[in-house]
Amino acid sequence: MDRIADMGGTRGWGLTHPPRIDEPVFEERWQGRAFALGILAIPVAGWNVDAFRHATERLDRTAYLDDGYYGRWLNSAELMLTESAILAPDAIDARARNLRGEHVEEPPTPEPARPGYAPAAEGSLRTVDAAPAFAAGERVRARDMSPPGHTRLPAYARGHTGVVELVQPAEVLPDTNAHFLGENPQYVYSVRFDSRELWGAGAEPFAVTVDLFESYLEKIA
């Protein structure tokens, strides 16, 4: 899905922020609460981590950026909990207004609509019977595709050719798991791309490895 979250190579962000010594894990109290709520609310909604990441990707620019990383956790949790009808739309804002002394009517609690998803096992790693389709050292091309739903194929790698550096264990495929359409576990390949392949002849010389699911890749004829 081509949204703001897919940031690799995009322009206009300005300078990086140099590391600070002794930066607290949570600079403000709410950030830790938002983090914990996000994690603990995933099973409440009956969702999985891929679906949660897809919720983050669907946030608008303001909800994605303005309150930083833990703002994303908060806003993703809200989207997840309203889509699974654990919370009514506007329930959080109504409660927040009442917390600060307003008197607004809160929406009634809806009937939950969990997706009926159950993982085949804990975590994301799976074993598959088939052998990996690609081998270390093999040249492969990342498919030039832009699926409408969730994917972990970053836009900057699409259509480009690289070399398999490492064959990783099979993992649940986020593209289907995020939509509760099955785990479809696949091998993951750490594919090394030359910077000039990605960014043109004038690029700094370096390499990038991207961890790509088997169905993101095609053989080079």
């Binding site: 403000e28 109290r29 709410w30 609460r33 938002a34 709520l37 603990l40 609310a41 409440v44 309150d67 833990y70 703002g71 908060l74 949790a77 809200e78 909990l81 654990i86 919370l87 329930a91 959080i92 804002d93 409660r95 927040a96 207004r97 917390l99 600060r100 609690t109």
Partner: peptide, 20 residues
Amino acid sequence: LSPALRTEALEQLLTERGLV
């Protein structure tokens, strides 16, 4: 609304129903 206030609201909504 500030994220601090909205986080507090979310925490209340989920904990008062025993969900978190």
